[in-house]
């Protein structure tokens, strides 16, 4: 068990899976010679050669489609988008090709491809480079959507994603790459579709994923110390399929729920959680669910405005107090 960064955990997963399965290859902008725009693929070119670590032109639509085609032919491509903002150029391949192929071929042509790269906002990157698109992809049947919050989960989930026979949208937290955590050196995987309780509690359930997990944990700590409120933090880990069971089980215990996400509110991940919860746990609810989301605006550049646009522990605490009727 070593303490490594989220970035290196992902690197380990890539390395492990490429060693394990010769059909796995990595393709994307700057993944090889440059060692990865965010250094996730550091050292892989040297280890596996340019047949399996493929630098591409800046052509997201094109190389995403190459990945889908290679998967249709039976390989297991990992397509890296430098960020998910740029992947919008490729969304036709993700949605119209990857997600649909198995179904519209009547089950003949699976597409075992992983699309991965950083999502969400970083610091002062402004509107076009600060977007959380989990809910966009989670909307699409045929796709799986994964968004790990910790180095441990990042490694285990990426390995599961690569081994999965379906197209997986794997959204890494740009701000999480440098975060550290314990990661076993040996083989392990984290199953897709299984949420994780990152902190147990009894008064309020906070549902979150990716970067907002740390926001929720900070809020939970202060709620416990300063307000004697016991918060259960549920990290979704996989957005689609959504682990509704873990969420509703937690709410059955706490009767209250706050959902935190970096994305915009309209049709967001939280909107889906709210729908599931009101349907499946209605009689356990003691308060309406409250969502803490990114502000419903394009991300501003100014530092203070940007801070105001993102979820933070104060906003989560305020929401928790509201559902717990503490105000």
């Amino acid at each position: 068990m070593g303490v490594i960064t989220y970035r290196d955990a992902l690197n380990q997963a890539l390395r492990d899976e490429m060693e394990r399965d010769p059909d796995v290859f990595l393709m994307g902008e700057e993944v090889g010679v440059y060692q990865g725009a965010y250094k996730v693929s550091r050292g892989l070119l040297e280890a596996f050669g340019d047949r399996r670590v493929v630098d591409t032109p800046i052509a997201e639509l094109g190389f995403a489609g190459v990945g889908v085609g290679a998967a249709m032919a039976g390989l297991r491509p990992i397509i890296e988008f430098m960020t998910w903002n740029f992947a919008l150029l490729a969304i036709d391949q993700v949605v119209n090709s990857a997600a649909k192929m198995y179904y519209m071929s009547g089950g003949q042509v699976p597409v075992p491809v992983v699309f991965r790269g950083p999502g969400g906002s970083a610091l002062q990157l402004a509107a076009q480079h600060s977007q959380a698109f989990e809910s966009w992809y989670a909307h699409i049947p045929g796709l799986k959507v994964v968004a790990p919050a910790t180095p441990y989960d990042a490694k285990g989930l990426l390995k599961s994603s690569i081994r999965n026979n379906n197209p997986v949208v794997f959204i890494e937290g740009e701000m999480l790459y440098n975060t550290k955590g314990e990661v076993p050196e040996g083989e392990y995987t984290v199953p897709l579709g299984k949420a994780d309780i990152k902190r147990e509690g009894t008064d309020v359930t906070v549902v979150c994923h990716s970067k907002t997990v740390s926001v929720a944990l900070k809020a939970a700590e202060r709620l416990a110390e300063e307000m004697d409120v016991s918060t259960e933090v549920v990290d979704l880990r996989t957005i689609r399929p959504l682990d509704v069971d873990t969420i509703t089980q937690s709410i059955t215990k706490t009767n209250r729920c706050v959902i935190v996400e970096e994305g915009w509110p309209f049709c967001g991940v939280g909107a889906q959680v709210v729908d599931d919860v009101q349907r499946l746990a209605f009689d356990h609810l003691d308060a309406p669910l409250i969502r803490v989301t990114g502000a419903d605006v394009p991300m501003p550049y100014n530092k203070h405005l940007e801070r105001a646009a993102k979820p933070n522990p104060d906003k989560v605490i305020a929401a928790v107090r509201q559902v717990a009727y503490l105000d």
């Binding site: 009689d283 356990h284 609810l285 003691d286 308060a287």
Partner: peptide, 11 residues
């Protein structure tokens, strides 16, 4: 008037 109660309280 209708009694306002959370779903949990009703249950």
């Amino acid at each position: 008037s209708r009694v306002k109660a959370s779903p949990l309280a009703r249950r």
